[in-house]
Design a binder for these strands. Sequence first.
DNA 1: CTGTATCCTCTTGGATACTG
DNA 2: CAGTATCCAAGAGGATACAG
Lengths: 138, 138
Amino acid sequence: MNCPIQLTSHIIGDKWILLILRELFLGNTKFDEFERNLAISKSVLTTKLKLLVEFKLIIKTDYKEEKKRTRSKYQLSKIGSELLFIMGAVMEWGNTNLVNKEETYLKIIDKSDTPVKLVFANQDNDILALDDLSFELS
Amino acid sequence: MNCPIQLTSHIIGDKWILLILRELFLGNTKFDEFERNLAISKSVLTTKLKLLVEFKLIIKTDYKEEKKRTRSKYQLSKIGSELLFIMGAVMEWGNTNLVNKEETYLKIIDKSDTPVKLVFANQDNDILALDDLSFELS
DNA sequence: CTGTATCCTCTTGGATACTG
DNA sequence: CAGTATCCAAGAGGATACAG
């Protein structure tokens, strides 16, 4: 099958992967940060991080600060960063339909601290209505 | 946790759910269409469809054509249709990074049959660059 | 056609202990 | 700190048979 959804589902069709990606987009980079923030077991975290490296969504780097031991950090690759559209869409849907707006929640903002939204556009950057869209196999 | 990604991951963090949603967006509605197109076992398909109904993403309707037995169909609800942004983002990423463009593949088009893209915009509908965006918890 | 029920296997994931 | 190794329990998913 040459279906983009089928192929991509092998990566993001996984709760842990989505949550690790959230951490990466939030700027976290270290094994123990993921472990603490996600309450995930070491073994699963190891497995998922390896998967993300295999898929080339993240890059693992060893680094060493003066007088300290060597440590590892994980960062989004180029194509990993492009998952921002998926994460943004997931956040928007979750915020609209599942999140309790009385409490704090996560959103995407621009440089003037204003919340942004996702829209469909054509090549001329005209914004399109949902009713005008359809799936096509070609 | 009041995190939109965490909450939504319980729904779309699942390969089968993503593929069933693809079928629904393609306009398929019947149990055996899903079964054939996805090569999924009956028991799993039953379970996932129930889940989608529980989450109110789809609506199950029984209908009866003249001289025929009663049948069931499944259709996206209002909030289910809003998953189009997630599906669109998944398709775009998959098409860019995983799909073989020599073969046929799936995309979203507008009324003039032109492929569309997803963009981030502010409230004034100005399109934003990725570098201008950041996650915020508030 | 649209399921349900049963069985059986393989995988996922948590807990714990250990290592450089 | 960043894992690896081992073990165990629970769940996911396929196959098959059956039912309205």
